[in-house]
Design a protein around this nucleic acid. Structure first.
Length: 1122
RNA sequence: GCUCGAGUGGCGGAAUUGGUAGACGCGCUGGAUUCAAAAUCCAGUGUUUUAGGACGUGCGGGUUCGAUUCCCGCCUCGAGUACCA
C-alpha cells in the first residue's frame, strides 16, 4: 500500500472540520494556551509559499501544546479593511466587500489545504460590522477617557468634569494639549456647553486637532509615519507632503514611558524591542527659555511682567498677541544643558511660528524667500540632500540666560518643526550640525571643552567632557555639569529638566472608504459620540469610491449619512438642518477643517480665556431638528488589529467586547508569531490600546503577548536565461533571431570579459546560421555583419516552473511560455547549437542550464511558488516539513522547490516503516501492551481528564501473548528516546528545522533496525503529529485508535534508554584530533590516560617525545600536549 | 551616519555549557534495477596533496591544552532608522 497523501490529507481535513477537533473551550479545568498568528490582509494574489511559514510554526506549537494537555486557543481571521480592495474598487466599481469576500475564499481554500489546527468557529473579519462594532466601541471609550499623570493611568472623562466643576483645572496634572489656559470652577461652570466640549477635547485620549499630517495626493489620504518608506507611500510609492488638516488623533504620547518600560516585561525579539524603543525615542535633557532681545515690532527685552511670561512661546499665536505681550521667549529642548555657555546662535525651524514675528525688516525678504523655498521642497528632497547647508538670519537676537549676551537667531531647515520645540540652541563646538552651520555662515565657535581641539570638527564625547569657559560649570564633567546647569536654570526660572520623546500622537483619520466609520456626528462643529446601544454604525453605500468634487473623503458621496438623534438612525443627508449642513460644506472647502478651528487658536492668556468661555455666537442655532452630519473620515488600518487578539476569546458576543469569564480564563496571548515589519505599527499601537483597556479595567494584563517570534521572509530563487544581443549591420529594426547561451559559456564570458567567439568552438556555425536566417532580409538591411561584445548579454527571467532540480531549462515549455522566442537558438552546456526551427523536436542531446539568483518573491520576477501546486504534487505534510526544514524560523531564506524531494522521500520512508509487509501491508506488532500507557504523561492537566483516555481505545493485549520478536530492540528504544528528547527541546526553542533532521535520522535508524514494534511506532506517530498531522492521524487510525491523535499525550522521555556504556574518544595532539578510541565510560581520568598513552598510535604520534601535559575530560576528549 | 543582525562545502543549513567542524537534506559522481524513463536502492562527495599528511567556519590579533563558539580591532552583506538637538 503506497503513501497516498492526496487521499489521506483530504480525509483528515474533512474529519477535523466535521468533528470540530480543534475547537477551544472557554470553560475548562485544563490550563489555557493561546497561540496566535498575525492575521493576514486577504490580498487578491493569494498565498505564496512564504506566507504559511509562520502559520506552520504556530500550528506545530499549538498541536504540541495539545499533546501536552493544554486547552489551546489557536484562531485565525482576516484584517480585511485596507487599501488594495479600495483601489480595485476605484478602478472597476466593484464593491470592496465583494472582492474582499472573494479573496478570503481563496485564502481559506489555501489555508485549509495545509491542515492547520485553527479553531475556525472563532474566525473574525475586521470589515464585518459585528466585529467593527467593537472597534467603534473602543474608540468611544478612548474618547471618554483622559490621562491622569498623577495616577499614571487613563480615567473616565466624567471624573475630570467633576474635578473641573469643583476646582477648575489648576490642580489637574494631565497629558493634554499644551495650549489650555487655567480656569477656575466658576469659570468652568459658567461656560457654554460648546466651550466645555472644546476644552474637554484637549484632554480626551482621542481628539480632533489640526495636525501636520503626511498627505499623499495620489492616494487621496493621510498616512501614518510607519506607512511611509523613504519619503514615499509604502503602498504604491507615491510622494507624500506635509499638510495641516483637522484629524482624529490618538494620544499615544500619554503612554510613551509605559510603552518603553513594558518592553522589559515581555519576551519579544531584541531587534523588535530596539526598534520600538528607537521609535519612541526617549531623550533626557532640559528645556531652556531664551528671551528674545530686540525686534522692530515693539518688543522690548526689558520691563517684563513676570506674570505675563507664558508657559510656552508656541502659544503666542499672532502678532497682535505679541504686541500686547512684551515678552517673547523661545523655548528649546537640549540633551546637553551642560554646554549652555557654548551657545553662539539659535536656529528655528523655518515653519516656527515666531519666525514672522521676530524677523527684522532688513532680513524680511531673505527670510521669506528661504521659508518659501523650504516649503516647496518635498520631504524627499530634503532627505536626499542633507549635505547642503542652508539657512537665513532673522536679524533678531535672543539673550543668553546667564551671560545676558546677545545671540543671533537664524532659521535653518536642519531643525525640524515636529521635534522638541522646533528650535535649538546651537552649540557649534559640541554638535556637528551646528558646527557645519556656523562654519558655513561664519558664526563664531567658542570652545567650552578643556583640552579639546575643535578646529576641525565638533566634539561630542560625553565621557571625555570637561567643561571650561563656562562660569559656574568650569571643571565639571558631563554628568555633574548637566545637573548643575539645570539647577541654575530653574533658579532663574528659565528652564527645567525634561524628558523628550520622538513619538508623536498618532493620526487616526483616513480619507478612505474601505475602513471603519467613526461613530461620530457633529453638532455645532463639536463631535458627538453615538450611544453604545446604536452601534455598529454601518459603512454607507456610495456610488463612487473617490473623494467628492468638493474634496471631501469618499463618504461624502453617501446620500444617507446623517444621524437622527430622535430616532437614533442613519438617515438621508437631506434631513440635516441648513445651519448644520453649512458646516459640512465649509469643512470640505477648508480641507475638512470645521469652522471652529479659527476660534480654537489664540486662547492663550487669562484675559482672553474669559472671553472664550462666554457663550459663543456659533451657539445660536436655527431650525435644529436633531439631525446632524456624520463623520466623513474612516479609521486607519491599524484600528481593527489593535484589539483583535482579545476578541478571539469571545468572538460572537454581541453584548460585550468579550465576557469577563472569557478574558479571565484566556488572559493574554502566550505565543504570537508574525513578521517584523509590524514592529512600529501594529505592535506598538496594539500595546497602547491594551494598556488603555487595562487602565479602564477591561483586561487583566497590560501587555497582551508574553512571547513573540518573528518569522523570516522566504525569498524566491529566480531563474535567468542569458540572451546574446548581437548586432546585424546597420538596421536596428530588423527582427533578430534569439540566441540563448547556457550557463557555462555565460560564466566564461562574464568572468574574463571574453567574446562569444572566444568561448564557443562552434561559433562559425552559429554565425553562419544567423547569416542564413537573415539572408531573406538582406536587401532591405544592407550589409550583414554579426558582432558581439562581452557586455552584450542580457539577463531574462524565466518562470521557475520551467526549470528542473538540476537547473536545466525545459526548452519546449520555455518557447511556449514566451511565444516570441520561437525563432531561437540555444547554445547548450555541451557546446551544441540547438535551433528550435530546424532541429527536430527533442533531438538536443545536451541540456540548457539557467543561472539562479535569490530575490524577493514577486510576480514580476516569475519566481512565485504557489503552495497549492506543491500540495498537489507532494502533499501538505511534505510542504509543512520542508518549510520548517529550510532553516531557522527567524532567518530569511531562499525557497527552492527542488529540495522538497528530500522531505517527501522521508515521509514515504516513514510510511514504509509502518508498512513493511511483503506487499506493503500495514505491519505493526499488535500483540504487546500498547506502549502509550507507559511512556506518556501530561504536564498541564490536573490529571485524569480526557487525555489519558485515548489509550483506552487501543486493542488491549495480554502479556502472555507477547512474542519475543515484537519486543522493541534496545537500540530502537534508544533511537526513539533520543528523538523524543531532541524534538521536545527543539519545539521549546522554536528550532523546527533541526527536529526535521532528527526525524529523518530516527526513521533511517528504525528502518535499518527493521523495527515493527508498537511500543516504538506508536509514540513516533505522536511525535510526528505536530509536523505532519495528516500522515500521523492516518497511521494512528491504522494503529487501532478511534479518537484523533491531536490530543494523545506526548511521549515521555526516559533517560535510561539512552545511557551509553562507552564512548569513542577523540585523541588529539596539541588540539588536533589524530585518531579515536572506544573506551568505557566507567574509566576515570587516570585510567584513560594510561590506556591512551599505552596505545601504539599515541607512541607513533609522539615519535619519542615526552608529552608536557595530558588533558583528559572524561566523556569528552583526550588532548596530549607536547 | 546611528541601531540591530548575519558571514561555515556547489546550495539550504547543523554543531545544546569552549571539546571529533560540515549532522540532515538538495545537487553532483559512480553503480544496481529497467527495453527505456520515472521511482527505488547502494557507494562516494570541504580544499589540497609527494597519499604520510597539510590546510580549512569573512579578515587580523588575543585568551585557552583546545575557539565556528569567548575578548579586541577591521571587512562585507542584510534589516530598521534617518538632520531627533
Amino acid at each position: 500500500m503506497h503513501y497516498d497523501f492526496g487521499k489521506i490529507e483530504k480525509k483528515w481535513q474533512n474529519i477535523w472540520a466535521k468533528r470540530g477537533t480543534f475547537k477551544a473551550e472557554n470553560n475548562s479545568e485544563r490550563k489555557k494556551f493561546y497561540v496566535l498568528d498575525m492575521f493576514p490582509y486577504p490580498s487578491g494574489a493569494g498565498l505564496h509559499v512564504g506566507h504559511p511559514l509562520g502559520y506552520i510554526a504556530s500550528d506545530i506549537y499549538a498541536r504540541y501544546k495539545r499533546h501536552k494537555g493544554y486547552n489551546v486557543l489557536h484562531p485565525m481571521g482576516y484584517d480585511s479593511f485596507g487599501l488594495p480592495a479600495e483601489q480595485y474598487a476605484i478602478q472597476t466599481g466593484q464593491h470592496p466587500a465583494i472582492t474582499t469576500e472573494e479573496n478570503i475564499k481563496t485564502y481559506r481554500r489555501q489555508l485549509d489545504q495545509l491542515g492547520f489546527s485553527f479553531d475556525w468557529s472563532r474566525e473574525i473579519r475586521t470589515s464585518d460590522p459585528k466585529y467593527y462594532k467593537w472597534t467603534q466601541w473602543v474608540f468611544i471609550q478612548l474618547f471618554n477617557s483622559w490621562y491622569n499623570s498623577d495616577s499614571d493611568k487613563a480615567e473616565p472623562i466624567e471624573d475630570l468634569v467633576s474635578i473641573f466643576e469643583r476646582d477648575g483645572n489648576t490642580n489637574v496634572n494631565a497629558v493634554c494639549d499644551d495650549d489650555i489656559p487655567n480656569f477656575s470652577a466658576d469659570e468652568w461652570n459658567a461656560s457654554s456647553s460648546n466651550k466645555k466640549q472644546e476644552t474637554l477635547l484637549k484632554y480626551r485620549l482621542t481628539y480632533l486637532a489640526d495636525a501636520d499630517v503626511n498627505w499623499c495626493p495620489a492616494l487621496g489620504t493621510v498616512l501614518a509615519n510607519d506607512e511611509i518608506v523613504n519619503g514615499v507611500s509604502e503602498r504604491g510609492g507615491h510622494p507624500v507632503v506635509r499638510k495641516k488638516m483637522r484629524q482624529w488623533m490618538m494620544r499615544i504620547t500619554a503612554y510613551t514611558q509605559r510603552l518603553l518600560d513594558g518592553l522589559d516585561k515581555i519576551d519579544w525579539p531584541q531587534p523588535l524591542k530596539d526598534s520600538q524603543a528607537n521609535w519612541i525615542g526617549r531623550s533626557e535633557g532640559a528645556t531652556v527659555k531664551f528671551r528674545v532681545r530686540s525686534s522692530e515690532n515693539g518688543v522690548v527685552s526689558d520691563n517684563i511682567d513676570d506674570d505675563e511670561i507664558t508657559k510656552d512661546a508656541e502659544t503666542i499665536k499672532d502678532a497682535e498677541t505679541a504686541a500686547h505681550n512684551p515678552a517673547l521667549f523661545i523655548d528649546v529642548f537640549t540633551t546637553r544643558p551642560d554646554t549652555i555657555f557654548g551657545v553662539s546662535f539659535m536656529t528655528l525651524a523655518p515653519e516656527h511660528e515666531l519666525v514672522s514675528k521676530i524677523t527684522t525688516s532688513d532680513q524680511k525678504a531673505a527670510v521669506e524667500a528661504y521659508v518659501e523655498a523650504t516649503a516647496k521642497r518635498s520631504e524627499r528632497d530634503r532627505m536626499a540632500d542633507v549635505k547642503t547647508i542652508t539657512g537665513a538670519f532673522t536679524g533678531a537676537y535672543a539673550e543668553h540666560p546667564f551671560t545676558k549676551e546677545p545671540i543671533p537667531i537664524w532659521i535653518g531647515d536642519y531643525v525640524l518643526a515636529g521635534y522638541g520645540t522646533g528650535a535649538v540652541m546651537s552649540v557649534p563646538c559640541g554638535d556637528q550640525r551646528d558646527y557645519d552651520f556656523a562654519k558655513h555662515f561664519g558664526i563664531n565657535i567658542p570652545n567650552i571643552f578643556e583640552g579639546i581641539d575643535i578646529s576641525e570638527e565638533a566634539f561630542a564625547d560625553k565621557e571625555k567632557t570637561i567643561i571650561t569657559n563656562s562660569d559656574f560649570l568650569n571643571g565639571l564633567p558631563y554628568k555633574k555639569a548637566v545637573k548643575k546647569s539645570i539647577a541654575e536654570l530653574e533658579t532663574l526660572g528659565q528652564g527645567e529638566g525634561k524628558i523628550n520623546y520622538r513619538l508623536r500622537d498618532a493620526v487616526f483619520s483616513r480619507q478612505r472608504y474601505w475602513g471603519e466609520p467613526f461613530p461620530v456626528y457633529y453638532v455645532d462643529g463639536m463631535p458627538q459620540m453615538i450611544a453604545d446601544e446604536h452601534l455598529p454604525i454601518m459603512l454607507p453605500e456610495v456610488e463612487k469610491y473617490l473623494p467628492t468634487e468638493t474634496g471631501e473623503p469618499p463618504l461624502g458621496n453617501a446620500t444617507d449619512w446623517a444621524w437622527d438623534t430622535n430616532t437614533n438612525q442613519v438617515v438621508s443627508n437631506e434631513n440635516v438642518a441648513p445651519s448644520a449642513r453649512l458646516q459640512v460644506s465649509e469643512r470640505a472647502n477648508s480641507n475638512f477643517t470645521p469652522s471652529s478651528s479659527a476660534e480654537r487658536s489664540g486662547s492663550t492668556d487669562k484675559g482672553q480665556s474669559n472671553n472664550n468661555f462666554a457663550p459663543s455666537a456659533v451657539e445660536e442655532q436655527s431650525n435644529d431638528n436633531g439631525v446632524y452630519p456624520l463623520e466623513l473620515n474612516t479609521m486607519p488600518g491599524w484600528a481593527g488589529s489593535s484589539q483583535y487578539f482579545n476578541r478571539y476569546m469571545d468572538p460572537h458576543n454581541d453584548d460585550e467586547i468579550f465576557s469577563q469569564e472569557a478574558i479571565d480564563y484566556w488572559q493574554d496571548v502566550d505565543l504570537y508569531i508574525g513578521g517584523s515589519e509590524h514592529a512600529t505599527g501594529h505592535l506598538l499601537y496594539s500595546r497602547f490600546w491594551q494598556k488603555f483597556m487595562f487602565d479602564r479595567g477591561l483586561v487583566p494584563v497590560d501587555e497582551y503577548a508574553k512571547k513573540l517570534i518573528n518569522q523570516g521572509m522566504i525569498t524566491g530563487t529566480s531563474a535567468f536565461v542569458h540572451r546574446w544581443d548581437y548586432t546585424i549591420g546597420e538596421n536596428k529594426k530588423a527582427e533578430k533571431k534569439n540566441v540563448f547561451i547556457s550557463q557555462k559559456f555565460v560564466k566564461k564570458m562574464l568572468s574574463k570579459s571574453l567574446f562569444l567567439e572566444d568561448v564557443l568552438e562552434n561559433y562559425e556555425i552559429l554565425r553562419k546560421s544567423i547569416f542564413d536566417f537573415h539572408e531573406k532580409d538582406k536587401n532591405e538591411m544592407g550589409f550583414i555583419k554579426v558582432t558581439d561584445s562581452p557586455s552584450s548579454i542580457s539577463k531574462i527571467h524565466s518562470d521557475v516552473s520551467l526549470v528542473n532540480s538540476s537547473d536545466e531549462l525545459d526548452i519546449q515549455a520555455f518557447i511556449k511560455w514566451q511565444p516570441d522566442s520561437e525563432n531561437s537558438m540555444f547554445i547548450l552546456e555541451n557546446g551544441e547549437i540547438y535551433d528550435v526551427k530546424t532541429s527536430p523536436e527533442g533531438s538536443s542531446g545536451g541540456a540548457f542550464i539557467v543561472n539562479r539568483e535569490v530575490e524577493k518573491m514577486s510576480k514580476s520576477k516569475y519566481n512565485v511558488v504557489n503552495p497549492e501546486n506543491i500540495v498537489k504534487e507532494y502533499g501538505a505534510d511534505s510542504l509543512r516539513m520542508y518549510e520548517m526544514f529550510l532553516g531557522p524560523m527567524e532567518q530569511s531564506k531562499p525557497w527552492n522547490t527542488a529540495g522538497i524531494t528530500g522531505v517527501h522521500g522521508f515521509l514515504k520512508k516513514l510510511w514504509k516503516l509502518y508498512h513493511s509487509g511483503p506487499n506493503g501491508e500495514f505491519t505493526v506488532a499488535d500483540l504487546e501492551r500498547p506502549a502509550i500507557s507507559q511512556t506518556t504523561g501530561t504536564e498541564a492537566s490536573g490529571g485524569g481528564d480526557s487525555f489519558a483516555k485515548t489509550s483506552d481505545n487501543q486493542p488491549q493485549s495480554k502479556d502472555e501473548g507477547l512474542r519475543e520478536a515484537d519486543k522493541p530492540a534496545p537500540e530502537s528504544l534508544k533511537t526513539l528516546h533520543k528523538t523524543i528528547k531532541k524534538v521536545e527541546d527543539d519545539i521549546q526553542n522554536f528550532s523546527f528545522n533541526t527536529s526535521v533532521s532528527t526525524f529523518m535520522i530516527c526513521v533511517n535508524e528504525l528502518t535499518s533496525q527493521k523495527c515493527t514494534s508498537r511500543e516504538i511506532l506508536e509514540p513516533l506517530a505522536i511525535l510526528m503529529s505536530p509536523y505532519a498531522p495528516h500522515i500521523a492521524e492516518e497511521l494512528w487510525e491504522k494503529l487501532g485508535h478511534t479518537e484523533s491523535i491531536a490530543t494523545a499525550s506526548f511521549p515521555k522521555f526516559e533517560e535510561k534508554y539512552i545511557v551509553e556504556s562507552s564512548k569513542e574518544y577523540p585523541i588529539s595532539f596539541n588540539g588536533k584530533t589524530r585518531f579515536t578510541m572506544e573506551l568505557s565510560l566507567d574509566l576515570d581520568r587516570k585510567q584513560i590516560e594510561e590506556v591512551v598513552m599505552a596505545h601504539k598510535k599515541t607512541q607513533q604520534q609522539l615519535d619519542g617525545r615526552t608529552p608536557k601535559k595530558v588533558i583528559v575530560v572524561p566523556g569528552k576528549i583526550v588532548n596530549i600536549v607536547g
